[in-house]
Amino acid sequence: MNGMVSRVEPPSGVRRNGPAPFWRVVRSELGWVLRRPRNLLALFGLAMLPVLIGTVLTLTDSAGSGPSLFAAMAGNGLVLPVFSLMMTQNLLLPLVTAMVAADALAGESAHGTLRGLLLAPVGRVRLVTVKAIGVASMIVLAVGVITLSGVLTGLTVVGGDGLVTLSGTTLPLGPALGRVALAAGWCAVQMAAVGAVALAVSAATEHPLLVMAVTVGGLIVFGVLEAFPNLEWLKPVMLTTDWYSISDVLSDPIRSQDLLTGLWRACCYILIGFSAATARMATKDT
């Protein structure tokens, strides 16, 4: 206890009004997200997935069978990142997204740190914005890691320079990478929609597990509902409806209709999720 000196000269900084600089808060938030061991582990796992798929693809000769796009991938390495995104976007990416969103508000609440942020004070709307940026950054990183690992694995392990599209045309490397980037961007927006909804749930509870359960559970429910023909009318509003359309970037010319519909839908979800999170935070007793 000897070190507990009670009189310390205050820092010489000039007192100013107004909240802490926005970007300093964002930087601190990003540092926090990226220092969390399990987030790093998740990114590593996601990076390994395309490597695994690529290896399996070259070791086994399973042309013509397996999940869709699998056949198109043989000797066509740049399909791998798109295929990896399609595979992970159903469960793994939403899981990682929900995990980060759960930490963002519910987790902070559970640790008692949310109080600290509000008492600093970080304004409530600003806090939701900062948290949304944190979740979005993690999504971009996760999608980016899969894409990058997919491209590298595809080009080195699976082979092929350029891309044979589903329509049978051959694209040179540049435009082919453009297609992959398009798929990644689209996937990131879809995940942002998941993240926004998860953030809204996160604002409403202090149990991080509940956020993950609700988010992933919701996606599974969508999957179940899609199987019922008499619930067809629900399809246009279900986030997952056009998720398989990500492979449409591999058509030539790009089959854009479903991609655009999916994009619009995701943006609606983002608006709803972010608004709900803000509304909840603004009125929340913490």
Partner: peptide, 12 residues
């Protein structure tokens, strides 16, 4: 924020 939710729902 509620207006935002409504707008999103309308978009859907």
């Amino acid at each position: 924020a509620s207006a935002g939710i409504a707008a999103g729902a309308l978009g859907l």
